[in-house]
Design a protein around this nucleic acid. Structure first.
Length: 125
RNA sequence: AGAGUGGGUCGGGCGGUCGCCGGCUUCUUUUGAAGCCGGAGGAAAGUCCGAGCAGGACAGGGCACGGUGGUGGCUAACGGCCACCCGGGGCGACCCGCGGGAAAGUGCCGCAGAAAAUACACAGCCGAUGUCCCUUAGGGGAACAGGCAAUGGUGAAAUGGUGCGGUAAGAGCGCACCGCGGCGCCGGUGACGGCGCCGGCAGGGUAAACCCCACCGCCUGCAAGACCAAGCAGCCGGACACUCGGCCCGGGUACGGGCGGCUAACAGCCGCUCUGCCGGCGGGUAGGUCGCUUGCCGAAAGGCAGAGCCAACCGGCAACGGUUGGUCAAGAUAAAUGGUCGCCACCCGCCUUUUUAGGCGGGAUACAGAACUCGGCUUACAGACCCACUCUUUUU
RNA sequence: AGCCCGGUAGUGUAGCGGUCAAUCAUCCGAGGCUCUGGACCUCGUGACGACGGUUCGAAUCCGUCCUGGGCUA
């Protein structure tokens, strides 16, 4: 039960933390997400989500952020500790959603699978 | 039954499970844990108006600048709302209108057209009257003086419109109706309306051009603003030294260290450099707390106050107001309000069944996310429901 | 979140109620010059963010949206 909790100390919470991760991280992406990961000295993993205005209006951005956070929370015991992660939405997907207006938001399973695939490919390296 | 008009309500529900934010209580040294409670909208949006609140400025008044603009109400206020008036549209329910002043003044009205605000006369008409010419003495000519603004063409707009009379030709020149203006009476709080009489017409449009009139308005905005601890520039005081007054104490002067020069050297003087000790004040920035989530009083129970919310009743055509009762309602800051599963509800198709209904499969769930708080406006919106009313057709 | 500016050819701009059927430069296309290309000359295509209103007439004035940008001691 405890392993699913997601308190505030497991999140990136200030601008300095984000800058630190983005400046000294490895970057990888697929068609939906962009992942930055960098080592930290906390002993656990931390998550930051950054979704730009090009992804959609406030409702869409809120929805995407919650999906990413939920996928991270439910799979945090499979994710290697000692790293900071920053997730963004790929501009490829944003362009697609701008062009096709009726494109649906990704469902939870899609986001989860995409996230795990990215992290696994990074572990192998 | 069909077509339509106006207004309103909702815009998924219940449960399980894993999480997030805030508050309270208990345990816990901190850190956290457990329990209970609360946790997005009708537009939270756009930021187009109006208020509260905060800071700054300010005697009062005026100017400038900006806004509003039929009338009367409502409201804390408004550019909002309600009712009515006027004009326009619709068979009608009803809808639309930035709807004051052009006789205070200024400006503008391209092209076309003779002429665009001055009454001018291009093409024209007439030439009755006067002059002239011809004359067969009846008259004729349209040459001059002069009369006319009906007709033509232009334009968005040409100095009231139509008809009849009238005339040399014409003309509100006269008359009838319509329009316009003035006066009186009546109705209305008023915008305005009705009736009667008089006037032959008073002289274009534009004020979302300047302007005039009436009314309103200080400027900036919660990233406002207040506070806290730390550090920095700066400022003040003290201590150390000398001196004066007999002392406490008070006043005055010089800080102090290092290096160099003058001097044989010390002291002293001059120059350069470093700004050290203690205490206090301390602008702004970055950080945090408050503002900030109903407020105040109170230990609590509770009480009082809110342009607060929900009902009922009363007054009012209505907007709205009053009384009584109940209720207190998200508060984040890389920013909570979510993920997933099941059942129900909505729509469509198929099957079973006389129907009700049941089963299976599929689909749809819009616009959109609080950021100091309210009152409006505007814009976006799948679908569902309710109320009132209008027109047409059919039946009784 | 609050506040404030702008929108004219592919690009950068002028216009301030009427000769706007919209200026200039550049780009693009065609032709000329040249043996060919460049430069130069001539001609052409191409725009008032959208909708509504005021006006005889709107790029211009007014309103509502759309869109781009800026500031916040």
């Amino acid at each position: 039960m405890k392993r699913f909790s997601f308190p505030k100390k497991k999140r990136l919470v200030s601008n300095e933390q984000f800058k630190a991760v983005l400046s000294r991280s490895r970057r990888s992406s697929n068609g939906l997400l962009i992942l930055y990961m960098a080592e930290n000295d906390c002993g656990y993993c931390r998550l930051g989500v950054s979704i730009g205005k090009s992804s959609g209006n406030a409702v869409v951005r809120n929805r995407l952020k919650r999906l990413l956070r939920e996928a991270f929370r439910q799979n945090q015991h499979q994710i290697p500790a000692g790293f900071d992660y920053v997730l963004m939405i790929s501009p490829r997907w944003s362009r697609k959603s701008n062009v096709e207006k009726n494109l649906k938001l990704p469902i939870f399973e899609q986001v989860e699978a995409s996230l795990l695939a990215l992290i696994n490919s990074n572990i192998k390296d």
